[in-house]
């Protein structure tokens, strides 16, 4: 408790002193993904099976993370490549998203890497994902951030 109080006092002084400051250190690059997945879920329309990994930790910590999605056809299990993904981190309980817009890259084999996912508050977050082009489906992996 004493440690929390002293930390709070120092941070309070920082807050009051700087008022409207910018970031004092940039986020570091997320680490590599673990071999075991975080979750597997079906898309809302049932067309896609989506396997989820997070880095640098799993389950994800507070702060900037990266998310890997392996997208497969729910019926055949075949990877689904060439999709366009719209990704929005959203905190439903608090009713807001993030200031940082995630970036999405693909390996062309049905795996999609989503970077700059900034889960800056503790609580439940959704990664609201819209899969487009060859399909039109959505999925929202859930992360409980401590």
């Amino acid at each position: 408790m004493i440690r929390i109080a002293s930390k709070t006092a120092v941070a309070a002084v920082l807050v009051l002193a700087c008022g409207c400051a910018g970031a004092d250190e940039g986020p570091s690059a997320p680490g590599t993904f673990p071999s075991e997945s975080y979750a597997t879920l079906l898309s809302d329309g049932g067309e896609l099976s989506i396997t989820v990994w997070t880095a640098p930790e799993q389950p994800p910590p507070r702060g900037e993370i990266a998310v890997k999605l392996a997208v497969a056809d729910a019926a055949s299990g075949a990877p689904v490549a060439g999709l366009a993904l719209d990704v929005v981190p959203w905190m439903p309980v608090m009713g807001h998203g993030t200031s940082v817009v995630p970036t999405v890259t693909s390996d062309g084999k049905g795996t999609y890497l989503i970077e700059h996912v900034n889960l800056f508050m503790p609580g439940r977050w959704e990664l609201r994902t819209h899969f487009k082009d060859d399909v039109d489906d959505r999925a929202s992996p859930i992360f409980d951030v401590p």
Binding site: A11, V15, C18, C20, A23, G26, P27, G63, F120
Partner: peptide
């Protein structure tokens, strides 16, 4: 309002 936040990937303060 002002907020100071620190996570494993950075720390910052801001307000308005």
């Amino acid at each position: 309002v002002q907020t100071y936040r620190s996570t494993g990937t950075g720390s910052e303060a801001g307000g308005g």
